[in-house]
Design a protein around this nucleic acid. Structure first.
Lengths: 131, 131
DNA sequence: TTACGTGCAAAAAATTTGCAGTTTC
DNA sequence: GAAACTGCAAATTTTTTGCACGTAA
């Protein structure tokens, strides 16, 4: 199942992972997905996101990256961009020393409007749907 | 209801907000809480957090602060500390210019172990339960 | 009367639990 | 045979929707 998450081009939620996993092993159950997911989470192999809930209250998963990155979600078209920043590493260090806290997981999610959604086309039927 | 969230000493989830709100107005419904919450979210008056899900899959709410802050959650004792960092402001600016993105909401959550949970007492029965 | 906010009942969605059958060591 | 993994059914939790009613503009 890690495979499914790893090879995905975007962030998937539990239901999507289930659907994809079923394509490789038709009789896999929703429960197994949840159980595996919680296992992978506990072991730090996947991270859980909610992408500002632009698509509902579910959660999304991604393979844990080597370097943390920011998830930038457009509140209008729901597109997600990942962005690496050394400032994020610096915040982690800062929290570690200033708060005497041993940082393990970092999640920075930013919501707002992407360029496309700000420039022009106020309608939703714009061409070339940019995922 | 904003009142309930504002005067709370900690972050509350929908169920807790409902319970508190009921103390002021006994016949308030769960649905009203959700509806109000989504209204307040849309208008940027409250922020939604999940505090690394240390306490389950629910969501927590807080009055939107003037300055964004980091939520630092201990994965063992589930205590939450808020921390302000100018680096966070800098990341927002960086995302704005580097990604051509209009930042509206920022959420940085960090999980790990607090000092108390690292130093000594490996048991859960430690004295002076620090929330 | 139109628009809005609310309670209530019910639905839908997301996640967890109990249990029994298999496989693995 | 104990431990780990899984499917299936069912339960729980969280959130949303439809509808009817009361209030205020």
């Amino acid at each position: 199942m890690l495979d499914v998450i790893e090879t995905a081009s975007q962030h998937l939620d539990a239901a999507q992972i289930l659907r994809k996993a079923k394509r490789m092993q038709a009789d896999i159950d929703r429960v197994t997905v949840y159980r595996t997911l919680s296992l992978l989470k506990r072991h730090g192999l996947v991270d859980e996101l909610d992408l500002m809930h632009v698509k509902g209250e579910g959660h999304y998963y991604e393979r844990r990256p080597d370097r943390d990155h920011v998830h930038i979600t457009c509140l209008r078209c729901a597109s997600v961009v990942e962005f690496e920043s050394n400032l994020l590493e610096r915040i982690k260090k800062q929290v570690g020393s200033d708060c005497n806290f041993h940082v393990l997981i970092t999640r920075l999610e930013i919501g707002g409007y992407c360029r496309r959604c700000r420039t022009g086309h106020t309608d939703n039927s714009g061409p070339s749907g940019h995922s």
